[in-house]
């Protein structure tokens, strides 16, 4: 079973890389199926994360209630305050050649870890949001979700149009640069790719740069926020 998951994870990444015409290998891109420590080492990370609860993650900023589009095409909340004890929110676009697939690969490892940890299972939501709604339709997000084959609660959201995603990006402080040909095939979308850790009250507890995402750190931070 695990091997099957791993194969699908690797397949997803390969598909993403091919579809996007990735010109350069980003360290860690092919690491979805590896144990976290090994993949961390492969990406140049050489440290043991501090243990959960041994540090503080003071809240800063609060994200409002936003309604987007689910991968089933229906309105879907960004967060579900009653259910989500904590959430990891990642903004991506499906044509992204490097950083977004890497972030998704790390979230796959987190998804596996959460499912296998009774302190986290059922208490954590992963939320992947496209900020490229013109290209990333609910159908495409559904296909992306199917390839990711989540173990736990992992929502794949998009928006009706760019105007609908703009207030969400502003709320998170997630930049998005409209490139020439924005929304057309092959166009790149400039952004400082970040992943946000929210607690059950929608407060931001940490922000991660996609270039240095480490599944072990994300899991320990989830445990720290949840008091596990």
């Amino acid at each position: 079973m695990r091997g099957g998951r791993a194969a699908r994870a690797a397949g997803l990444l390969a598909a993403l890389a091919v579809a996007a015409g990735a010109a350069r290998a980003h360290e860690g891109d092919d690491a979805a199926a590896r144990p976290a420590a090994e993949s961390a080492a492969a990406s140049g990370v050489r440290f043991e994360p501090p243990p959960p609860g041994s540090y503080e993650l003071p809240p800063f900023g609060k994200v409002g209630g936003h309604s987007l589009l689910g991968s089933d095409g229906r309105p879907a909340p960004l967060l579900e305050p009653g259910r989500d004890g904590a959430a990891l929110v990642s903004f991506i676009y499906l044509s992204c050649p490097d950083a977004c697939p890497m972030a998704t690969a790390v979230l796959q490892r987190v998804d596996q870890a959460v499912a296998g940890d009774p302190r986290l299972a059922g208490r954590v939501a992963l939320v992947t949001v496209s900020f490229d709604p013109l290209r990333d339709t609910p159908e495409k997000m559904a296909a992306f979700r199917a390839r990711a084959a989540p173990h736990g609660r992992w929502r794949f959201l998009t928006a009706q149009d760019p105007a609908a995603i703009a207030p969400v990006l502003a709320d998170f402080g997630q930049d998005r640069l409209a490139a020439p040909g924005d929304g057309e095939d092959g166009a790149l979308v400039g952004h400082t790719l970040k992943v946000f850790l929210l607690d059950g009250e929608g407060r931001i507890r940490n922000v991660y740069s996609a270039g240095f995402l480490d599944a072990r750190v994300l899991v320990n931070d989830l445990l720290t926020v949840l008091g596990g």
């Binding site: 950083a99 400039g190 952004h191 400082t192 270039g211």
Partner: peptide, 13 residues
């Protein structure tokens, strides 16, 4: 820099 020349930048160190 903020007008969409995404490919001309290095997003991450």
């Amino acid at each position: 820099f903020f007008a969409g020349r995404a490919g001309a930048r290095l997003a991450d160190a």
